[in-house]
Amino acid sequence: MNRRLRRQNTIAIAVLRGMVGLLVVLLVWIVVQLVTSGWSELTRGGFYTKVPNIGGPGGGVGPQLYNTVYVLILSMLFALPIGLAGGIFFAEYAGTGRLTNLLRRASETLATLPSIVVGLFGYALFVQATHSHPSRLAAALSLTVINLPYVVRISEDALRALPPALREGSLALGATRWQTVSRVLLPAALPALITGAIIAAGRVFGEAAAILFTGSNFSLTAHANYTLNPLDAGDTLAVNLYVFRIQAEPNVVTDARAYADGVAALLVMAVLVFNVGARLLGRAAVRRLQRTA
C-alpha cells in the first residue's frame, strides 16, 4: 500500500469514528440530561400511582401511565394482525406485478406521513365524522395508521430473511402455501417478529402528535379515569408532557415544570427499556428455537 492510500484510509477511519462518537455522545447527553432533571420525580413515592395534584405539589402520573398502556395495547391489537397479514401477503403471495408495486408504494407512503397530519386526519375521521369526542379508541386507531406500515415492513422482512430452503422443504412435502406460512415460516420468523413488534410498541409509547386531537380531553382535572371503556378520553404520558409544558398556567399547576421533567425522563427510560427488551426477547426466542440442550 502506498503512502497516499494509507493516509486516505487513516483519515476515512478517523472521520467515521468521529461521526459514530458524536452520535453516541449526543444520545448519552440527552438521556443523562433528561434522567437527571427528572430523577427526583422518578424516585418520588406516588409519582407512578397518584393523580396529578392541581394547585399544589406532590401529584403523580398514574392515570396517564394507565392510559398510555391502554392505548398502546389497543392499537397493537389492531396493528399487529393487519400488519402481519400485509407482510405475509407481500412476502409470500404478492409476486411482482404492477398492482403489487402500487400497494407497496401506498404502504411506504403511509409510513412517511408526518404524525401530526395523521393526527388531524384521525380527528376528522374518527372524531368528527363519527360525531363523537376524543377517545382512547380514536387515539388507538390513529396510532394504528402510524404503525401499520412499519409492522407490514417488519413482517415482510422477517419472512423474506428466512432461507428459501425452508419454504421449498415444506412445499415439497405436499404442503399448501398457507400451511407453509403458518406452520413453518411464521414460527421460524417469530424471533424477528417479536423484536419488531416491541420496537413498534415503543414508537407508539412515545407518540404524541397523532393522538393530541384524537385521544386527549386536555383536562388537567378530570384525571382519575381508570376506566375500561375505550370511548372514554384519556391523556397519555406524551400528550400530558405537552399539556404540562405548554398549556398549563404556572399558577394552576405549581410544579408543572417538575412534572414535565419527570414525565420526559419516564418516557425516555420506557423507550430504552422497550428497545433493549426487544433485543433480549428476540435473542431468547432464537435460543429457544434452536434449543438443543
Binding site: P163, A165, L166, E168, G169, S170, A172, L173, G174, V184, P187, A188, L289, Q290
Partner: peptide, 14 residues
C-alpha cells in the same frame, strides 16, 4: 405427497 424431495443442503425446520 407421492413424489418427495431431498435437497442439496439439509433443510430441517427449526
Amino acid at each position: 405427497r407421492r413424489v418427495g424431495m431431498l435437497f442439496q443442503r439439509p433443510n430441517p425446520f427449526p
